[in-house]
Computed example of a mutant assay.
Amino acid sequence: MASPLRLSVLDLIPVRSGQSSAQAMSASVALARLADRLGYERYWFAEHHNMPAVASTTPPVLIASVAAQTDRIRVGSGGVMLPNHAPLVVAEQFAALEALAPGRIDLGIGRAPGSDPVITQLLRITGPTADVDRFPDHIGDILALLHPGGAALRMTSGNEYTVHATPSAGGVPTLWLLGSSDYSAQLAAQLGLPYVFAYHFSGDGIERALELYRTGYQPSEQHPTPQTFLTLNASVAPTEDEALSRALPQMRAMARMRTGRPLTALESVDASASAPTDTAVTGLVEAMRRRWVIGSPDAAADAIRDLSTRYGVDEVMISPISGSREDEPFDSTPGREQTLELMAGALLTDSASSRELSASRP
């Protein structure tokens, strides 16, 4: 019998025109509480910097807030961009989160910068950017530092110096590698770690990446078998027309970014609908529409089941990209709430079973 499909949420904390960061974050915290009640598996925050339409710059801070205001859902990063941070700092932050919310913390790690070259230099001002080449070593450092036994450093004197992310760890967060390339899939397989393919960012190469991960997987003590899921963008509404209109602000923002145009806060649904025709933007929007899940609940559920079956995953993490209308409040996100509610109704029909399953999983 096939495993039941699990749903999770990836949140970039979108910021619409006229909305403050405080209002955007308040809306996302409310969305996380809703996901918790609906039976979603996990709720992750991305790390992006210096983008007017994205407020998820500090995943550990956001995770702490949401973990304190939810009951059962796993909370984590999707992901921490490790080259921007010292491995010890990441280990300490997530060890502290695990102590605050035992058994509910995920540490998703990526190696992309999460911003433009100027911001990348500012983030890495205390160390050479070439440290990205030491990504595998830094993953190993974090794993060792999070272990209850800590990590041992050998000093030039020959003595060992023990380092712990927390003084007395009772548990450790689950570490995931994120990516959309062969490199990340092969590294996750080599280290015996769970792996997430960033399908929401680029679906190219997913078949090869998952095949490399599964065939090359080296079992680890914590993860004897490979574990993977994919992320995707979704806008779901009672009708396909509404789902598309809700998705348009995010699609237009992505198209502008990919054509090198100035970044702005997200347009409202109304502003996107009345925007002048732009051939370059329209072409990219159409390409996104074919890859993203945009439609009515039944159509969206069928599309997600198809992706799950095609790529052999039993969990899908959706990034709810539904925009807001001009007359909707700034401190909530009705379109994204609707997407989560309709997807839960179509795919998580037995909420009690979903909660029991979530509580039993690492």
Results as ranks from 00 to 15, higher is better:
15 V>S: 00
18 G>Q: 13
23 Q>C: 06
28 S>A: 14
31 L>Y: 04
34 L>K: 05
49 H>E: 03
56 S>P: 08
58 T>C: 15
61 V>F: 14
67 A>K: 05
69 Q>I: 08
73 I>A: 12
75 V>Q: 08
78 G>H: 01
79 G>T: 05
89 V>C: 03
98 E>N: 08
101 A>K: 06
102 P>L: 09
102 P>D: 07
107 L>R: 02
109 I>N: 01
112 A>Y: 02
115 S>E: 05
117 P>I: 13
124 R>W: 12
144 A>E: 00
151 A>G: 00
152 A>V: 07
154 R>D: 06
156 T>I: 15
158 G>F: 12
161 Y>G: 03
163 V>C: 00
167 P>C: 01
167 P>S: 00
170 G>Q: 15
170 G>N: 11
172 V>H: 00
173 P>W: 04
175 L>A: 02
176 W>L: 03
176 W>N: 00
176 W>V: 02
178 L>F: 06
180 S>R: 00
183 Y>S: 07
183 Y>H: 14
190 Q>H: 14
192 G>N: 03
193 L>P: 01
195 Y>R: 06
202 S>L: 10
207 E>D: 15
210 L>T: 12
215 T>V: 12
223 H>V: 12
232 L>G: 07
234 A>R: 04
237 A>Q: 11
240 E>V: 14
246 R>Q: 13
248 L>A: 12
249 P>H: 10
251 M>A: 15
253 A>D: 09
254 M>Q: 11
256 R>W: 11
258 R>D: 09
267 E>D: 15
267 E>G: 11
272 S>V: 08
274 S>G: 01
285 V>H: 10
287 A>S: 12
293 V>C: 02
293 V>M: 04
298 D>V: 13
301 A>Q: 06
303 A>L: 13
309 T>Y: 00
310 R>I: 05
320 P>Y: 00
320 P>I: 11
338 Q>A: 10
347 L>Y: 13
350 D>I: 11
352 A>R: 15
